[in-house]
Design a protein around this nucleic acid. Structure first.
Ligand SMILES: [Zn+2]
Ligand SMILES: [Zn+2]
Ligand SMILES: [Zn+2]
Ligand SMILES: [Zn+2]
Lengths: 131, 131
DNA sequence: CTTATAAATGTTATATTATTACATAGTGTT
DNA sequence: AACACTATGTAATAATATAACATTTATAAG
């Protein structure tokens, strides 16, 4: 069981936009979209994004500087994320594979070190773009 | 056998700086360091970085917007990279594990899709910072 | 060697992404 | 009420990256 976070006003506004979007959103694109709702400055967006990432409601796609809602019922494992990214249409899908996450959390480097936190981004062509 | 790339003047200058650095370097820090060598503009740095990444001599650490020399005898697998990153001292190590790379290149997502290109970043504390 | 072509360079300006600094307001606890 | 804590508002600026265009250099045919 994980703690329920009640989102604040700004956090909720920004989460809703990201959650409704079929594509990852960039911070300034979010800013543009929420200006009618009274959020005027980049910092207000970045603060909400930081918090949403921290509590696992959204994830940052590092290679794209963009944000996507967690597709995994608000990741218990906010800090162990995996995505597939289409290099043609930029579609991003969160991968939820217990096999993969087990493999990675159990992976030991040459010094025997394990890591519970990781981010993995796969690149390729999505089903639609392959045909 | 993979093709030998003869680096151009700018590419060589920038590769040398990255290769000598014990830490990943950021683009503008590189720029600052090569201004005495006649490279004056960000674009000159970014163009060299792009090429060096493309041919696998360096890799970009996406979560840090920084660049590191390939520690793996110029990655045959420039497009399948894995790193461990210390969240305390920011030390970055390239992971070369055939087990890991085999697992990831053979990984199939829910639609049976495989990916030959990926980037994995593990986060934790390095040996030094754990003690 | 000349011409054609592609790759790399130089330069200026600008776009995009993210943070610092400081003031104010709300929320919950004692 | 007093306190601590979190969130918000606002302005300015820092850090990261690309666009556009002119010029030069390397490579390869003919
Ligand atoms: Zn998730
Ligand atoms: Zn696609
Ligand atoms: Zn490498
Ligand atoms: Zn460390």
């Amino acid at each position: 069981m994980h703690k329920e976070h009640t989102l604040t006003k700004n956090q909720q506004i920004i989460f809703d936009i990201i959650d409704k979007s079929p594509e990852p959103l960039k911070a300034y694109s979010i800013l543009f979209n929420v200006q009618k709702k009274g959020i005027k400055a980049p910092l207000q967006v970045y603060r909400a994004l930081d918090k949403l990432v921290e509590i696992g409601k959204i994830h940052k796609i590092e290679s794209r500087n963009a944000f996507i809602a967690c597709q995994n019922s608000s990741c218990q494992v906010a800090k162990a994320t995996a995505f597939s990214i289409c290099e043609m249409c930029e579609k991003v899908t969160e991968i939820s594979s217990t096999g993969l996450s087990k493999y990675l959390t159990n992976f030991k480097d040459k010094e025997g070190m394990k890591y519970s936190k990781y981010n993995l981004e796969f690149f390729g062509l999505c089903k639609k773009c392959r045909t």
